[in-house]
């Protein structure tokens, strides 16, 4: 395995790690920012596959517009993370609506 395919392998592992982190993290704003990092990483993966147009579109849209839309919706919904499983750990962080 030469150096280029090794770096390709590492990028794919980082992609899976960011995707896992984006859905495991309880804080919603952190999840949205990690999703932005995931989107940028997958744009780099498209660049490895020589799809330059798709890489540009994904970097502009996924890391830019989609993140802005998610953060806007997060700010409008006041960011209640209501994953009920770890709710006791986040008791002091913010109270529920009802």
């Amino acid at each position: 395995m030469d150096l280029l395919s090794l770096s390709h392998f590492i990028v794919l592992l980082f992609l899976i790690a960011t995707a896992l982190a984006a859905i495991i993290v309880e804080d919603l704003l952190s999840a949205i920012i990690i999703y932005s990092a995931y989107s940028f990483t997958i744009a780099f993966t498209y660049l490895i596959f020589r799809a330059n147009d798709v890489a540009m579109t994904e970097a502009a849209v996924g890391a830019g517009v989609t993140t802005i839309l998610f953060i806007a919706a997060f700010c409008k919904t006041k960011g209640k993370e209501s994953d009920l499983v770890n709710h006791e750990a986040h008791e002091g962080h913010g109270e529920k609506t009802k």
Partner: peptide, 12 residues
């Protein structure tokens, strides 16, 4: 259960 988390999953 969170709807925004569901949308992040849809994008993934």
């Amino acid at each position: 259960p969170n709807l925004i988390k569901k949308l992040i999953g849809l994008n993934i």
